[in-house]
């Protein structure tokens, strides 16, 4: 096994140890933070598929987080509280939105792609802002967390954390297989040289669109979990700044490495909690850290780890 899966598994194991640790030191809030970390790690992984492996810089990825979150609110309003059904609904909505918006935006490249994905993200944002049945821009709170097999197990923060962690492990495992399978190699090929791909008989568009749809669906699952974590759904989840934060997570962790995407999300959420505890101007400190990473380790945390482990190419 190469270094990258080892690093990812180490991260998952470390996270699994958080609830007992939280119980030991008597700080249950640690588990809540770890849940948030795992949720955003799923979102960051999904973005890494298109941004890191396909070189498609989507600036509207938070829309999928929102679609997943609203799937919970809409389903719950109609009496559907099962987590799996809600995930399927969120992923389905995300697939439709990704297929339509992707079919249009993937006809452009570079800055135009960034702008058009941003535009689609904003369209989704304002759609939910004007959806007064679900609280408009105030959003709406959920009566309870989703159910699993008809039981309200998720009301327990620790149980909920392990469900989220299991989803993260599945997302990581699935994406790890995908990027090392035929499809992943083609996607990486389109990142490396579109012209060369055409010259050996590929049509990049269809692979990019498929990756775009898969990515959106996984992110929607993160959205379903996010709504459950906060027990609240609002358009703020899909604000364009949130899309930016997801990109920042990848920058911090290392674009194009799944373990890096996970680490980036963990560190970002962790720093947010830590710095926000010190000062309300925490974003300044976070900006400086980001600056340092981009300047001294452009490949992010993953690049840093790789440099510290010479000879073990991830």
């Amino acid at each position: 096994m190469s270094a990258a899966p080892k690093a990812a598994i180490a991260l998952l194991v470390l996270m699994a140890l958080v609830p007992p640790l939280a119980a030991a030191i008597g700080d249950p809030f640690l588990t809540v933070i770890a849940t948030r970390m795992a949720v955003f790690a799923i979102a960051a992984l999904s973005l890494d598929l298109i941004l890191g492996y396909g070189a498609l810089v989507s600036f509207g990825h938070a829309a999928y987080l929102g679609l997943g979150a609203y799937a919970v609110a809409v389903c719950a309003r109609h009496g559907i509280t099962d987590l799996v059904v809600q995930m399927a609904a969120g992923a389905g909505a995300a697939a439709v939105f990704a297929a339509v918006s992707g079919a249009i935006s993937l006809r452009t490249r570079g800055i135009y792609f960034i702008m058009i994905t941003l535009a689609f993200g904003q369209m989704a944002y304002f759609f939910f802002v004007s959806l007064s049945a679900y609280g408009g821009d105030d959003g709406t709170s959920l009566a309870a967390r989703s159910t699993l097999l008809g039981r309200d197990w998720l009301e327990n923060d620790t149980a909920f954390f392990y469900v989220v962690l299991a989803c993260l492990a599945l997302a990581y495992g699935g994406l790890h297989r995908l990027v090392h399978a035929r499809f992943g190699r083609v996607l990486i090929g389109t990142r490396e040289s579109e012209l060369r791909m055409r010259a050996i008989g590929y049509r990049p568009f269809r692979y990019r669109l498929a990756a775009y749809v898969i990515s959106g669906m996984i992110c929607a699952v993160a959205g379903v979990l996010l709504a459950n974590q906060t027990e609240y759904v609002s358009p703020a989840y899909m604000a364009w700044t949130r899309s930016g934060e997801l990109i920042v997570m990848l920058l911090l962790g290392g674009i194009g490495t799944l373990a890096g995407a996970m680490a980036g999300a963990l560190v970002t959420v962790g720093l947010e909690e830590l710095l926000a505890g010190w000062s309300e101007h925490w974003r300044l400190g976070f900006g400086l850290i980001l600056l340092a990473v981009v300047l001294w380790s452009p490949a992010g945390l993953a690049g840093l780890v790789r440099r510290l482990l010479p000879g073990d190419r991830a």
Binding site: R177, H180, A181, R182, G184, G189, I200, G201, Y202, A210
Partner: peptide, 21 residues
């Protein structure tokens, strides 16, 4: 191998490691 893959069946395969084909 990517060029060989282009003429050897579907590339919509998501599970099996391509490096071991």
């Amino acid at each position: 191998a990517l060029a060989v893959q282009g003429r050897s069946g579907s590339s919509f395969r998501f599970w099996r490691p391509v490096a071991r084909e």
